[in-house]
Nucleic acid binder design. Sequence first.
DNA 1: TTGTAAGCGTTATCAG
DNA 2: CTGATAACGCTTACAA
Lengths: 333, 333
Amino acid sequence: MENLKDRVTIYEVAKASGVSLATVSRVINNQGNVTEKTREKVQETIKKLGYKPSGLAQALATSKSTTIGVVIPSANYVYISCVLNGIAEVCKEKGYNLQLFSTSHSREDAIRVLEKVITSHVDGAIIFDDELDEEDVSQLNSYYVPTIVINNRVEGERVGCIVFGYEHNLRKIVADKLAKDSEKTPTFIHVHNCGRLLARTEKSFIEVCKQANREYAIFNCDDSSSRTYDDFMEYFKTHKQGYFVAYRDSIAGAIVNAATDSGLRVPEDVEVLSLIGTKYANITRPTLTSMNIDMVDVGRRAMYMLTDLAKNELEKKTYRIESVYVKRDSTKE
Amino acid sequence: MENLKDRVTIYEVAKASGVSLATVSRVINNQGNVTEKTREKVQETIKKLGYKPSGLAQALATSKSTTIGVVIPSANYVYISCVLNGIAEVCKEKGYNLQLFSTSHSREDAIRVLEKVITSHVDGAIIFDDELDEEDVSQLNSYYVPTIVINNRVEGERVGCIVFGYEHNLRKIVADKLAKDSEKTPTFIHVHNCGRLLARTEKSFIEVCKQANREYAIFNCDDSSSRTYDDFMEYFKTHKQGYFVAYRDSIAGAIVNAATDSGLRVPEDVEVLSLIGTKYANITRPTLTSMNIDMVDVGRRAMYMLTDLAKNELEKKTYRIESVYVKRDSTKE
DNA sequence: TTGTAAGCGTTATCAG
DNA sequence: CTGATAACGCTTACAA
């Protein structure tokens, strides 16, 4: 693919309007020191020739790419695209370009992606990927790329992070539940390879159960709502109750549907709590009790933090967002 | 933000390993004509110095950015992020970077975004945005940017497109329905400012109704499932039946839920057809009859077409994807 | 096999 | 206010 050729360059604009490169440059950058007359003349030929400056050359010359890199897992989850949307919104607002890097569920790949981020010469990066740990991020950092990490506590000179407050909240909710209900088996839905947040919440869940001296179960399932549905249709043939904690709305929704479709009552027989709530929590019937974090806002905030960080004006390098428990109809309370 | 400075350059690598720039360049580009010995020596200092080539400078020197630009509306719809995911997947596979541009529901803004795409010097672009028409795209084209347009029939030398086959299918389905059912009022859900696809399907819908000599209704609603739900809770106080055609799953789901929550039976009293089906069609109860197009595949295909186009090897410049009617439980048949 | 030097399209620093 | 000219970091003939 060669499309940079045959384009009008600043040089041609200069020649065509009978001025020097420097003058044209001044015009396109709206700098002073240009007569109104020459400015007009130059602008006219710019329009006539259809000249557009090369962002590449500008970036090289100024050492600023005005581009930020965003690293997200390739998984197609609603909450991820919400974060991306928030980032994109602020990028646009602030005049940054956004380069998107996606990782594929392996640390190896994630590190390769990080290398790409480095060679891409972005002015900053936002990383929302569980595979990468502090060491990897500090690598980026050593190339002077200001970085905001989402959902991972990371420290460093040019690093800030946004961490989610799920565990504390979850602990409380599950403990309350166990205290009130001694019937239902507390069950955590373990989705294979689903990252740190899941691991942390799972750990919290187990601890709470142990503290309450209660039997609990871990249910392994695929990261797919339709397969989860099938699994639970099978499961509910032999199990007639349960208190389930699921990672995302689609998984939680699959369980709720499987329960209902198996003739069980939600929330009387089966209760389901969804960890990462999205707007789909309201679409299922019954609606899903979930723990909400406004992911679009997370994206926005990350971007704001990044620009502050780049200006060395970020005071609070760690920003914690608490999840909000939203009681809906898939649980008793 | 200045992060390009202070980085190790090819020049320093050359000096540190006692060779010339050219040799280092050959090494990092895996070109032949380098002794194994010097290659090793260079690679060693590269590692030692932590040198990473500047993509910017490479792009400028080679006139290839190995980046493609993707233009999508900022709306946070599942089907849009599916397309993006498909594109990202193939980008990665082919070694392209992906620059993301989002537009904000106005042609004016979309055109501004297109200018950005041009200055960004991408090697190709994929446009999935209803606001832009053929003229705008040809603008891009005149800058030698190979372009694939999704959901819009566009022609041009370096342009290809993917069009969705909805209307034909929809016509047939609605006509069948009207023939069999003379009770329910056919109603099209009009979402304000929702683009060409909606407009086209709405037109088809109206034509079919007129041909069948049937009264029909257009229901205006916001592009929000929760507000649509509220609107329909109100609506179903006075209307007790209807055959609704909705744009997306969340809108359709809102109607189904409002109907059920109002004591109406779906599909006996109220039937709902969703136009752009996603995986959420299976999550609602009853499930949503919808017209499916695999949007991830659309993204992949767009990217494949783009790389072919760039090599001038794209034969079929227009690729048509037919929607697949999936009968689920929100309609009788 | 290796090095020299001329670009790539800008910006930025000086003189004038 | 304007114009040379040297960067920016890399690739690539062309020479050696």
